[in-house]
């Protein structure tokens, strides 16, 4: 028996593993075909951030992101996974550059899709300018790759959610799958509260955070294409489905997205809370949405709103 087979993680293991609780490395290992992952510039290269020592902060040998290639149901994919437990998964110079390089290669090869497992609070403050610029380069590289015909799929269900510039990169992807825990936003709850006051947003009100930024709301308004249960296996299946169904990118996509967003503003622009939006969207018993188990929510969401796969 080969080492790869000995290490073969079972589907059962992927089913039993919470995406939210797992490390970035465990997510990659269980999401891809067993033993297929090969990392680029792994931790053994010790390419750490050159800036954290200025702040006497500990470095990590992979700078909080893993990039490489592997197979998904037999087909090659590029994959990037952020580690939300290191500096909140934030983008720094090295962290961001790894994803830039991966996307540029994908653009040139044209045929290999990219999976991005987001888990980020946004820009890493200690290297804020380099992080912001890395995000700008990633957004450009995602659009260039998509223009070349590459599918870029975002998977969002980590501890740090997908905030700040991470939310903008997610908005550039071909398609997104999100779990209930996978919050997507630009300004985080604390940022809004600090800048606008607790009357505008009470960051300690967890129910408010989930229903304003969480995966269920994003799925219901069309901000994400698929809702996944919080297991690595559910995200694997979501990635496969999105790779199958995602459309290309061009001027028609952008015009369709413009209409989709204008329509959203017109219909929900005056709503004061997520529950008001769900009611306006025709969700029966909207108040019970936050408590619905994943399978029942997916059934409900599919009934209420079919996501246009050509408007992102």
């Amino acid at each position: 028996m080969s080492i790869a087979e000995l290490e073969k993680p079972s589907v059962e293991q992927a089913r039993a593993t919470s995406f939210y609780e797992a490390s970035a490395r465990a997510r990659v290992r269980l999401l891809l075909d067993p033993g297929s992952f090969v990392e680029f510039i792994g931790p053994e290269k010790r390419e750490v951030s050159p800036h954290l020592k200025l702040f006497d902060l500990p470095e990590q040998f992979d700078d909080g992101i893993i990039v490489g290639h592997g197979r998904l149901a037999g087909s090659p994919v590029f994959i990037a996974a952020q580690e939300g437990r290191f500096m909140g998964g934030a983008f720094g110079e090295v962290h961001g550059a790894k994803l830039v390089g991966l996307l540029r290669a994908a653009k040139e090869l044209k045929s290999i899709p990219v999976l991005i497992l987001f888990d980020t609070g946004g820009v890493r403050l200690q290297e804020a300018n380099a992080g912001e610029l890395a995000i700008a380069e990633i957004m450009r590289a995602v659009i260039e790759a998509r223009t070349a015909g590459v599918k870029v799929i975002g998977l969002i269900g980590g501890r740090s959610g997908c905030y700040g510039g991470g939310g903008l990169i997610a908005g550039c992807c071909s398609a997104l799958a999100v779990s209930e825990q996978g919050r997507i936003a630009v300004s985080g709850p604390e940022v809004i509260e600090t800048n606008r006051g607790v009357e505008e947003f009470d960051s300690r009100d967890r129910a408010l955070v989930w229903r304003t930024m969480g995966g269920k709301h994003r799925r219901l308004i069309g901000g994400a294409d698929l809702f996944a249960d919080d297991t690595v296996q559910a995200f694997r299946e979501a990635a496969l489905e999105l790779l199958e169904t995602t459309a290309g990118f061009g001027i028609d996509t952008l015009n369709a997205e413009q209409s989709r967003l204008e329509d959203r503003l017109q219909r929900f622009g005056a709503c004061r809370d997520a529950v008001d939006i769900w009611v306006a969207e025709g969700v029966p018993d909207a108040g019970s949405v936050p408590a619905l188990p994943a399978d029942q929510f997916i059934e409900l969401a599919d009934k209420v709103r079919r996501i246009a796969r050509d408007a992102r």
Binding site: G167, L168, G171, V186, L254, E257, L261, F268
Partner: peptide
């Protein structure tokens, strides 16, 4: 803005 999906509008 966050309720309505600001990340999508800025990305767009």
């Amino acid at each position: 803005d966050e309720l309505l999906g600001l990340n999508e509008f800025l990305a767009h």
